[in-house]
Simulated scan of single mutants.
Amino acid sequence: MQLYNKLSAKERAELIDKAGKNRLTLSFYQYAKIGNPQILRNHLFITWDTLDVLGRIYVAHEGINGQLSLPADRFNEFKAHLDTISFLKDIRLNIAVEQDNKSFLKLKVKVRNKIVADGLNDDTFDVTNKGVHVGAEQFNKLIEDEKTVLVDMRNHYESEIGHFKNAITPDVDTFRESLDIIEDDLKTHKEDKNLVMYCTGGIRCEKASAYFKHKGFKNVYQLEGGIIEYTRQVKEENLENKFLGQNFVFDDRRAERISDDVIANCHQCGNPFDVHTNCANAACHLLFIQCDSCKEAMENCCSSECMEINRLPYEEQKKLRKGQGNSNDIFKKGRSKALKFK
């Protein structure tokens, strides 16, 4: 019985090409009390592997968070399986705005302490006492209200390439950092303002809204389904799109274009650009914005130092990386003194 992925990304990509089928990229989450996450994890892997599901799924005692792709012609089978699990029956699935057959190249189902790393002690507040969920139409009306404060619950590298008009975009590296900053900045408006939040698919706002209500905010709202569901509703209901730029996503697509606005800049030359890349130096792997001209000039590297290392033979690069470990210091997103326009 296979419980883990055995194919490399390259092998899986070749199989996708050979199959010649269109795939759907989607995401979902659900907070629920799961007694034994490991048993559920194994069940999901065994079943989804037979459906050719690929993606990254986290299972914890508090629920499940999934981002994945599957052959479009097997969607109904996948949905039918979800419906056999009581807390996932009829769950909303956020279908990606832009599709890519290779958005994911491995199936990873992992047991985690939490489905989102929020750093919170859930025993100190009622996580079920959440804010009011609003759809795209009500959201548009709310954010035009002068009594509303709109807050982006994502990290700096996400909001940099796209966000809603007039949103507060905390310059943070993690979701947990933003919670205290937002509370402190808005502490004098806990009763007289509408606190309206949004994120990619809604999961971060689920916990954040309960946390801010616990902290004394009286009028707390969250965008149902996040930016992904908002975009779908805007198109279906012919509503005004108030999102500027791209929606950052955590797969190989990196982003979905929501509007034609380019609100970011190349981190190396400062010209308008909003496509992320990873530094070609495997010991750096920095996520940053690099335009096509700089990509060519810098050989897809974030600095001259990384460019020199990346030119070395592979075995020499491996020796330089030995003992470094894969820490946040190496895989930092968009923070480097070498980037002049960040």
Score class of each variant (00 low, 15 high):
Leu287Pro: 00
Gln246Arg: 15
Cys294Gly: 01
Phe248Lys: 06
Ala280Glu: 09
Phe250Tyr: 14
Cys266Ala: 08
Arg254Met: 14
Asp251Glu: 06
Thr277Phe: 00
Leu239Met: 03
Gly245Val: 11
Lys295Phe: 02
Cys269Asn: 06
Lys295Asn: 13
Cys269Lys: 07
Lys295Pro: 01
Cys279Thr: 03
Val275Asn: 12
Asp260Gly: 10
Cys294Lys: 00
Ser259Asp: 09
Ile289His: 01
Asn241Ile: 01
Ala255Met: 12
Phe250Thr: 13
Gly245Lys: 14
Gly245Cys: 11
Val234Asn: 03
Ala297Arg: 07
Ile289Ser: 00
Val262Gln: 13
Lys235Ala: 07
Val249Leu: 05
Lys235Glu: 06
Asn281Lys: 10
Cys279Pro: 02
Phe288Ser: 01
Ile263Asn: 07
Asn238Val: 05
Ile263Phe: 04
Val275His: 14
Cys294Trp: 00
His285Lys: 11
Leu286Ser: 01
Leu239Gly: 07
Thr277Glu: 05
His285Gly: 05
Cys291His: 02
Phe273Thr: 04
Asn265Tyr: 11
Phe248Gly: 01
His267Trp: 04
Ala280Pro: 04
Glu240Lys: 13
Asp252Thr: 09
Ala283Gln: 13
Asn271Lys: 15
Cys266His: 08
Gln246Val: 06
Ala264Thr: 11
Lys242Asn: 14
Asn241Ser: 03
Asp252Lys: 15
Cys294His: 00
Glu256Pro: 00
Glu296Gln: 11
His267Pro: 02
Ile258Asp: 03
Gln233Val: 02
Asp261His: 14
Lys242Phe: 06
Asp274Gly: 14
Asp251Trp: 07
Arg257Val: 11
Glu256Asp: 15
Ala282Thr: 13
Ala280Gln: 12
Phe250Asn: 09
Ile263Pro: 06
Lys235Pro: 00
Asp274Ser: 15
Asp251Cys: 09
